[in-house]
Design a protein around this nucleic acid. Structure first.
Lengths: 347, 347
DNA sequence: CGGGTGAATGTTAGCGCTAACAGAACCTCG
DNA sequence: CGAGGTTCTGTTAGCGCTAACATTCACCCG
């Protein structure tokens, strides 16, 4: 399959007015060759200050803007990166995207995006392909999803590609927050309050982050020889947290719950409130993410902060390295930080 | 000022391996001219089925991918749109972006983004300029901000540009949710519960959305000859809502509050809870946005839903129209919908 | 059976730019 | 003063593609 999209074909009016000025136009006005203009514009090669002035004046006057297509054609570099974003309206992915985009722009790159709703081997492959058609020089896949990991197995090897939050086995460099350690910290914090065990409201099974967090929780309990309660599973949404909360109400020995994200924790709190269970008096609750709202939940939520902006910046760095020829297959971890609030106030 | 960014200049390794296959390569393998290949690939002009087969096979075998730069150079069309996003990690903007991107991709366009942290005439201008350097064919500015509106006054007229949530006076087509009407509905709903008046926690003064919501609230009260309490102002964040809530506690006649967004409403709820004021028993609260969390606040929040995905889709439609030569300067409104929940349960 | 017709294919030019080299102008120094 | 730099500027070619026109070929019809 090859590019068949012909955007706006029928609808487009003939291009308006006189075309954009070119190097030649500027050159004509400044009385130099187009090559001199190119040198001024790109600051490549020596130009007499006086000549430069004339050229710059002409550039200004004509409103000259380099034609990226022509430049890309001859240099083979488009100056654009691509980002594949899964569920990009979620807080985490959106912030990560933001971080990447900022870092990229500072380095002089443009960013093209392609979002995917339902993950899967094909959809991510399609997204990558769609970006390649836009001639991106490198790709970041924001896809903390198991199938995403599998999709990466089939990742093209002829374009630099890095992933955020991908699995360990991914055949590409991966950067992610240390979910495992974050979960461990949250669980230990809950245990430090004197509980016999900690329940876990996990995220969807096919999300790597959900798995890592669950593993961190489980390992912590097991390392201490504590009972590991059955996992309750949600889908990240507040609604699923609410439903899980209703299911948890009345469980014997329910004293501490670690939710795999803040939104589900919110649902939990809601369900507990409705059932007359008080947090933190009766049950302690911790979340994950530290969304801006978390500090204002009822009660304010103890949670694990992920610095998404930092993740975005470092991801870009990783991609840049990769584009420079480095082929680190390594997995890079950004530490997570426990933020203690009222939902785990000691009794 | 002209493009001076030279991405990855020093770091970049010489391009790896043999270059990407070109039309000529495919042509050679299929035993036809490059022009025939072009026709097959673009489905332009007649090609004998048998020839097409051969060409397609060669395309497949070589992994041919059209070179966008070359195509853009000769056609003058890049197949890319640009989106300037302000605070793109907020729920609303992120969702809008998502909607635009989806609609654009379906129509065969790629999307380049450029986010801006602090708005202002220059920063938005810079963003637009940065996108133009990426040769986008049209631009959407997501910037529900007053200064954004002003920046749009200086918008270049030689590229199709539309805005989301811009002011009425903007010299470009604007699409937005009907903030005024939404605020009116929320206020009337609160009044319908039998209150003498409704307090308002407004958003930042320099946001158009904040202004429209405030106006909707004020007009509703004034139309009924009701007392208009002094506006309390926040910055959209839960924290500012919390602070506003503390300021409101103890005000005489505080029975109903309309918050300009859900996050601030969350802060309000928090402050009220801490002060022993019960919602909805003592005070009624309504928000704006209907973020996914709103239904799970304590108590679940009555709010005004904005369909951001729809906004995104329609914005793209507007831009497409504009690119086709239409020059509707009109302002398009998407209706907002009141969602009633427990925070305004009648007493 | 010649000439018209239309479908299928090929040829050519050029989009705007940069790389690579070629030339001109100016120095420096023995 | 001229060989041998240096600095500045110009010329040429070609990136991969599509638009426009040119050509070929098969076929139909009077």
């Amino acid at each position: 399959m090859v590019d068949r999209a012909k955007p706006g074909e029928q609808t487009r009016a003939p291009l308006p007015g006189p075309r954009q000025p070119s190097l030649a136009d500027v050159a004509g006005m400044a009385g130099v060759s187009h090559m001199t203009v190119s040198r001024v514009v790109n600051e490549s090669g020596p130009v007499r200050p006086e000549t430069r002035e004339r050229v710059l004046a002409a550039v200004q006057k004509l409103g000259y803007r380099p034609n990226t297509a022509a430049r890309a054609l001859v240099t083979g570099r488009s100056g654009t990166l691509g980002v594949v974003a899964l569920e990009s309206n979620l807080y985490g992915p959106a912030s990560t995207l933001y971080g990447i985009e900022n870092a990229a722009r500072e380095a002089g790159y443009g960013v093209a995006i392609c979002s995917v709703t339902r993950p899967g081997r094909t959809s991510i492959g399609d997204a990558v392909e769609s970006l390649r058609r836009q001639a991106v020089e490198g790709i970041v896949v924001i896809a903390p999803h198991v199938t995403a990991g599998r999709a990466l197995d089939a990742a093209p090897s002829d374009i630099p590609l890095v992933a955020v939050g991908g699995g360990e086995a991914a055949p590409v460099p991966v950067l992610s927050v240390d979910q495992y350690d974050g979960a461990r910290r949250a669980t230990e914090h809950l245990l430090s309050l004197g509980h016999r065990t900690v329940w876990h409201l996990a995220g969807p099974e096919d999300w790597l982050e959900a798995r890592d967090r669950e593993r961190g929780w489980r390992d912590t309990l097991e390392a201490r020889g504590l009972r590991v309660p059955a996992v309750v599973r949600g889908d990240w949404s507040p609604r699923s947290g609410y439903e899980a909360g209703r299911a948890l109400v009345g469980k014997r020995g329910l004293k501490a719950v670690f939710s795999a994200n803040d939104q589900m924790a919110l649902g939990l709190l809601r369900a507990f409130t409705e059932a007359g269970i008080r947090v933190p008096e009766d049950v302690h609750v911790a979340g994950f993410d530290d969304v801006p709202e978390a500090a204002y939940f009822t009660p304010p939520l103890t949670t694990v902060r992920q610095d998404f902006i930092e993740v975005g910046r470092r991801t870009f760095g990783l991609l840049q390295e990769r584009m420079a020829g480095g082929d680190a297959k390594a997995r890079h971890l950004v530490p997570a930080e426990l933020v203690v609030r009222d939902s785990t106030r000691p009794r």
